[in-house]
Amino acid sequence: MTGAPNPKTKAELFAFLETLGIAVQTHEHPPLYTVADSQALRGTIPGGHTKNLFLKDKKDSFFLVTVDEDADVDLKQIHHLIGAASRVSFGKPEALMELLGVAPGAVTVFGLINDTSGRVRVVLDSTLMENAVINAHPLTNEATTSIAAADLLQFVKATGHDPVILKVTG
């Protein structure tokens, strides 16, 4: 596998959002690799903050599961909920770069802009989607972008994906 031929940049993501009429607010910060890093450094950015799981099953179907940062996800059972063919494991960094155009530590729902072949199934946790505002990395872990929940759904659909909203957390 090779990397995404030309993964989109943060600027290209923002230009795409602008063409959709979606307003976002972005906060720059040092690189964040974990939820703990994020909680310590982000300050008081309001809204739901995301944790993203890039998963695959034995048939090489890929899933991006986006949940609230504090959510507990049962990786031994989630395959039943998301329609995977088998138990899931984390997708390899090469597949992550090829499909979503991001590196580990920067996994984000905004990476769907790079999945032009529609290989990744998107699952948004229903609890996360109860927030009026959702926060996610804009293709880099050096910033956090705030987007209205309804606008996030509009973005996902505009990338050619059909978002599934499910309760995947305990």
Rank of each mutant, 00 (worst) to 15 (best):
K10Q: 14
L13D: 00
A15K: 12
L17D: 03
E18V: 00
E18Q: 15
T19H: 04
G21W: 11
I22F: 09
A23L: 11
V24R: 08
H27N: 08
E28T: 14
E28N: 15
V35P: 02
V35K: 07
A36L: 06
A36R: 13
A36F: 07
A36T: 06
D37R: 10
D37K: 09
D37M: 09
D37Q: 08
S38Y: 13
L41T: 03
R42A: 10
G43V: 03
P46N: 08
P46I: 00
G47W: 04
K51Q: 13
K51E: 08
N52W: 12
F54A: 12
F54V: 10
K56E: 08
D57I: 09
D57N: 11
K58A: 15
D60V: 01
S61E: 14
F62I: 02
T66Q: 06
T66G: 09
V67A: 10
V67P: 02
D68I: 00
E69W: 09
E69Q: 14
D72I: 09
D74G: 11
D74W: 10
K76N: 15
Q77A: 15
H80L: 12
L81M: 14
G83C: 06
A84I: 06
A85D: 13
R87E: 12
R87D: 06
V88Y: 07
V88M: 09
K92E: 10
K92D: 10
A95Q: 13
A95W: 00
L96W: 06
M97F: 13
L99W: 00
L99H: 01
G101W: 03
G101M: 07
V102S: 06
A103K: 14
G105K: 03
G105S: 05
V107A: 12
T108C: 06
T108V: 05
T108P: 04
V109K: 03
V109W: 07
G111F: 04
L112E: 08
I113E: 02
I113P: 01
N114E: 00
N114F: 02
D115R: 03
T116H: 15
T116F: 07
S117N: 14
V120Q: 08
V120A: 09
R121K: 15
R121E: 05
V123F: 13
L124K: 04
D125K: 10
S126M: 02
S126R: 15
L128Q: 02
M129R: 07
M129W: 02
N131G: 02
V133M: 13
V133Y: 12
V133D: 09
V133C: 04
V133W: 14
